[in-house]
């Protein structure tokens, strides 16, 4: 839990519920898209303050090498209810397996690896965000995804980046496809104002029931 912006138990429960629904939809979409049965684990969520991001990430993601993709999201550019940046982190990625997942028959070059990362993170991110958007009656726009790094260590993930966000909503997703099992972590980085807005929405949802 971050300092100052504590989530109540109710808020946490609703957030978890929203993420569950979002991930459920993501799993369905991925199954149809990949024409293989994709199972997504129940996401485990955590709110972390941006200052402690790297040590927390090290705890959450024990992998030695990671690959990461970033993507911006916002409800409105100049006056957003919610805006932020999502980072999808892939641990110990086996690209040959991922290539099979999206039925790629090309040779897996460095560029193809990047394309796979971008494609899968865009799908997971899109599915997750549209799930959340639907639950809170908002519409999210997003920027194209871009690679932060490929096979880098966690320390190098954000040290060169200027972190303008106060908080991160960390959603750990485990997904498996037939005999393959993949793991990635989705981080939604947001400023204070967005987290507060999200909390208000969560309160409203809690009151409605």
């Amino acid at each position: 839990m971050s300092s100052g912006l504590n989530f109540t138990e109710d808020q946490q429960d609703y957030l978890q519920e929203i993420c569950n629904i979002g991930m459920g939809q993501a799993g369905q979409s991925l199954s149809v898209l990949f024409e293989q049965y994709v199972t997504l684990s129940v996401p485990s969520i955590e709110i972390i303050s941006a200052i402690n991001l790297v040590p927390t990430l090290k705890r959450l993601i024990p992998a030695e090498k990671i690959s990461a993709v970033r993507q911006g999201f916002y409800t409105h550019v100049t006056d957003p209810n919610i805006c932020g940046e999502s980072i999808t982190i892939f641990s110990n990625t086996d690209f040959e397996q991922l290539a099979q997942l999206i039925d790629l028959d090309e040779e897996v070059t460095f560029e193809v690896e990047q394309e796979i990362l971008l494609e899968i993170s865009n799908i997971i991110n899109g599915a997750c965000l549209s799930g959340i958007a639907e639950q809170i009656s908002e519409r999210f726009f997003s920027t194209p995804p871009s690679i932060i790094g490929q096979s880098i260590i966690i320390d190098n993930l954000l040290n060169k980046e200027h972190l303008v966000w106060d908080h991160a909503l960390s959603i750990k997703i485990q997904y498996s496809v037939d005999k393959y099992s993949f793991q990635c972590d989705l981080l939604l980085l947001m400023p204070d104002s967005s987290v507060k807005y999200l909390q208000n929405v969560l309160n409203r949802l809690a009151d409605e029931l």
Binding site: L33, I102, E111, L118, L129
Partner: peptide, 21 residues
């Protein structure tokens, strides 16, 4: 076809960048 399929299915945009293609 995969790109278009994901757009129709997920109702969300997909992208392609010069760095990869």
């Amino acid at each position: 076809k995969r790109k278009i399929k994901s757009v129709f299915l997920l109702k969300s945009p997909s992208y392609s960048a010069w760095e990869q293609r």
